[in-house]
Structure formats: structure tokens, C-alpha cells
């Protein structure tokens, strides 16, 4: 079957029951989305389908009805996405394993709510687990990313 991933067509020959995550990682070689739980309980595998965040570890290939965007596809040619830039400036990551998922959720949040409150952030990020406990910095980085985005950076 044919997927569109990060704006490019990707041909994947696999069982339609295979979760999108494994098609991306093992077949297409797109390794940004991470395997953490396999049951949509940790958010490490988060990607967007037509702009909506989904847990790719639980989404069967056969149900992918839209363009897929992964962490590899949010920066422009010469510039990080404002959320990535904010993550860099706030020095958010520790082990970094969950951060691709955290960033993808934050991108989706800011697309819907350009200036989120702490409450909005809590409501959006509960599905993304971080065992290193980077939450205080994630919160700060989302606020910074909102400012960067509004400033057109």
C-alpha cells in the first residue's frame, strides 16, 4: 500500500493489520517515532495523520486514511520547527526517548491553541510519559514555542 509520509510517497508491502509504527520503523526506515509500550499508553510513537496526533503503535496500516507526519517532517529545510527550537533553547531532553512523541503532541496542541495555558498543556500532554521527569521543562518549552510561533520565528 501507498502512504504519504512527510510529504513523500512511501510504498509499503505489509499486512494491513501491522501497526503504522512498525511499518515506518522496520520497513520504511523512519526511526523518529519510538516504540515504548505497543498499547497507546506512553505516547513515544506519536505521529500526525492529517494533523491529528495518533499513537502509531496501535494504528493498523489499513486504517491510515491521510498524510502521515513524523518528527522528521516538521522542520523546514533550513530551520527547526518552533517547538523543536524551544526544546533546544530550554534544554528539555534527558534520555530523549520520549521527546519525539512529546514534540509531536505539542505541535498539534499549538496548531489548535496558539497560546495554551498551563491547564491546556496538562490536558494535552497526559498521554505522553517521560520517565526522566522532564515535565517542568516541557511546560516551559511549550510556552516558549507558542511565543516563537506567534512571533513568526
Amino acid at each position: 500500500m501507498r502512504l504519504t509520509v512527510n510529504g513523500r510517497p512511501v510504498e509499503i508491502e505489509a499486512d494491513p493489520e501491522m501497526p503504522l509504527l512498525w511499518a515506518l520503523r522496520d520497513i520504511a526506515g523512519i526511526l523518529g517515532p519510538k516504540f515504548g509500550c505497543g498499547i497507546a499508553a506512553c505516547g513515544a510513537c506519536t505521529v500526525h495523520v492529517d494533523g491529528t496526533p495518533v499513537r502509531s503503535c496501535a494504528l493498523p496500516l489499513g486504517q491510515v486514511n491521510g498524510a502521515v507526519t513524523t518528527i522528521e517532517g516538521i522542520a523546514s529545510e533550513d530551520r527547526l520547527h518552533p517547538v523543536q527550537q524551544a526544546w533546544l533553547e530550554e534544554q528539555v531532553a534527558q534520555c530523549g526517548y520520549c521527546q519525539a512523541g512529546q514534540i509531536m503532541t505539542a505541535v498539534a496542541l499549538l496548531d489548535e491553541i496558539p497560546e495554551p495555558t498551563d491547564q491546556d498543556i496538562d490536558n494535552a500532554m497526559g498521554g505522553n510519559l517521560c520517565r526522566c521527569g522532564t515535565y517542568p521543562k516541557i511546560r516551559a518549552a511549550i510556552h516558549k514555542a507558542a511565543a516563537l510561533k506567534l512571533a513568526g520565528l
Binding site: 493489520e17 498499547i39 497507546a40 506519536t46 491529528t52 496526533p53 495518533v54 499513537r55 496501535a58 494504528l59 493498523p60 486504517q63 503532541t105 505539542a106 498539534a108 496542541l109 489548535e112 491553541i113 491546556d120 490536558n123 494535552a124 500532554m125 497526559g126 498521554g127
Partner: peptide, 16 residues
């Protein structure tokens, strides 16, 4: 909520 919709995890069929 934005960023965490029901359909972020719940798709058209039961997870196996």
C-alpha cells in the same frame, strides 16, 4: 482535548 483526542488512541477497530 486538543492534543489528546479520544481518536488519538481509539481507532476504528479493537487493538489485537
Amino acid at each position: 482535548n486538543p492534543g489528546l483526542r479520544c481518536t488519538t488512541c481509539h481507532f476504528e477497530s479493537n487493538s489485537k
